[in-house]
């Protein structure tokens, strides 16, 4: 029997109540939000529960939403996969823009170690309890977090390019 979305939703709501919310189908993937302080227990539950059995962490990454409410300016996205039922889910956890911090899941999935370091490197999201939270792709001396939207990609002093003529707006460049 295939693993149904409603089954996942019921189990999670039953166990975690209000901490798991906004169940929705986004494209072809079942998605929901989890309160940041509950993320480790939710993921551990999803991994260890016999019927859910989301035993594989496909991907972990960050997103920056500078225009959102201050409590939801960062998101950490987890993609989990149950190979036996061939079911994927996406979990989002929103974090505050001022001091983004979430608990590490590198003790649940070893593969999260570097993915969390990458997220820290690019977004400055602090993973509490991570064994070695330092920059991974950028150099250690770097002070900024380059994937944040306010970080400019090009030198802002350039005068040879007028973005108005290239369909660009401040939001997409």
């Amino acid at each position: 029997m295939a693993l149904e979305n409603t089954q996942i939703q019921d189990k999670l709501s039953e166990t975690f109540g209000e901490s798991v919310m906004h169940f929705r189908q986004e494209g072809d993937m079942f998605t929901f939000d989890v309160a940041a302080d509950k993320i480790t227990s939710v993921i551990l539950f999803l991994k260890n529960d016999e019927t859910l059995n989301f035993h594989f962490l496909t991907d972990l990454c960050g997103i920056h939403y500078p225009d959102s409410d201050v409590n939801e300016q960062f998101a950490v996205v987890y993609h989990l996969h149950n190979w036996i039922e061939n079911k994927r889910i996406r979990i989002k956890s929103f974090l505050s823009g001022e001091n983004p911090e979430i608990k590490t899941i590198s003790n649940i999935f070893l593969s999260a170690n570097w993915m969390e370091r990458e997220t820290y490197d690019f977004y400055g999201i602090n993973f509490a309890g991570h064994p070695q939270l330092k920059r991974i792709l950028n150099m250690d001396e770097m002070v900024s977090f380059p994937m944040r939207k306010e970080f400019p990609m090009e030198d802002s002093g350039r005068t040879d390019k007028d973005d108005r003529f290239f369909g660009r707006t401040p939001s997409n460049c």
Binding site: E26, D28, T58, C61, V77, R90, S171
Partner: peptide, 25 residues
């Protein structure tokens, strides 16, 4: 939209997680 598309790359699951906001990028 938000989509994730995996393929079997030379070394394993190569996935693209794409989020669009309606702009061209």
């Amino acid at each position: 939209a938000e989509i994730y598309h995996p393929v079997e790359g030379g070394n394993g699951e190569l996935g693209f997680y794409l989020i669009t906001d309606g702009s061209r990028t």
